[in-house]
């Protein structure tokens, strides 16, 4: 299954057109909840045509403060109403001192933070009655780390029992920005917990910095890392994220097709077994 992040810019094309044919779509519940009128009609039409996975932006499970109960209640009913199979969030925080910052901030890789986050994830999983798939974010600076990123992630996953969303581009970007080996990093992760994969494009903005822009086609070395990665795991849904600098639909479809053929190649044996 190879899906596409749903965006308003190509809503009409996805509903009525023939140029793009993802197996599923993904969107952030935040962008669609409490909405009526024109976009609600579009949402209903797109959901008639595609299965949907949800990718949250603002639960902020790494926050010092408690998750917002009203918001969680709304998420729960939204996931049920639209029959959403996977709800993913981020190993990050975007809210602090009760103020949202609308960005995914890097967690301090420290034991107290890992434990705290694991507890939050557990609370939410219990409330929603489903596991969360937690995404390893791209980040641009470490924050007073006392343990490695991989140890931090392992600690959170082990304690909370959550699943992982592996954004292969994020890991490529992080490996470049923080000078580590992407494959060695991935090899340290609890790969049996991977439930979902993201792929996206990035942009190198300086000799020592790549930005995770979602505004470019997937780069070749990220395809290569993807190919290597999926060999290590069982088949899971794969999503192409494209949020800016939206190209022609044919070009997005080419990326979907390329991802699909890599999945097919690497996961052949699984298909035979299944």
């Amino acid at each position: 299954m190879v899906g596409l992040g749903f965006r308003r810019e190509f809503a009409e094309e996805m509903i009525s057109g023939t140029l793009i044919t993802p197996d599923f779509i993904e969107f952030a519940p935040e962008n669609w909840m409490n909405i009526g009128g024109y976009w609600k009609k579009i949402l209903h039409r797109v959901l008639e045509k595609y299965p949907v996975l949800c990718h949250g932006l603002s639960l902020s499970l790494g926050s010092p403060e408690e998750p917002d109960k009203d918001f969680l209640r709304y998420v729960k009913s939204f996931l049920e109403e639209y029959n959403v199979r996977i709800y993913s969030e981020h190993l990050s925080y975007s809210k602090c001192d009760n103020a949202h910052l609308y960005d995914l901030l890097p967690m301090p890789f420290r034991m107290d933070a890992a434990r705290h986050m694991a507890t939050r994830i557990q609370q939410v999983q219990e409330y929603l009655q489903r596991p969360l798939a937690m995404e390893i974010i791209s980040y641009y600076t470490p924050v007073a780390p006392e343990m490695s990123e991989a140890d931090f992630i392992n600690e959170v996953v082990q304690r909370s029992g959550c699943q992982l969303l592996l954004d292969v581009n994020n890991i490529y970007v992080n490996a470049f920005n923080h000078q580590y080996d992407a494959k060695a990093f991935i090899a340290q992760l609890p790969l049996d917990r991977v439930a979902y994969i993201h792929m996206a494009g990035h942009e190198q903005v300086s000799p020592d910095m790549i930005l995770d822009t979602h505004g470019h086609p997937i780069a070749d070395p990220v395809y290569e890392l993807f190919e290597w990665t999926i060999r290590q795991i069982r088949p899971v849904p794969v999503l192409l994220e494209r949020d800016f600098n939206i190209p022609q639909m044919q070009d997005l479809q080419k990326e979907l097709t390329r991802l699909k053929s890599i999945c097919h190649q690497q996961w052949k044996q699984h298909e035979l077994v299944a």
């Binding site: 790494g62 926050s63 010092p64 301090p108 107290d112 600076t141 470490p142 924050v143 007073a144």
Partner: peptide, 26 residues
């Protein structure tokens, strides 16, 4: 070092206000 909560608060506070802050590793 201060606990993670304080580090996060300092980090976020700086992002909102620009108030100078020093966090190890940042």
């Amino acid at each position: 070092l201060p606990d993670s909560r304080q580090l996060q608060q300092r980090f976020a506070q700086h992002l909102r206000t620009g108030v100078n802050t020093a966090i190890p590793g940042v």
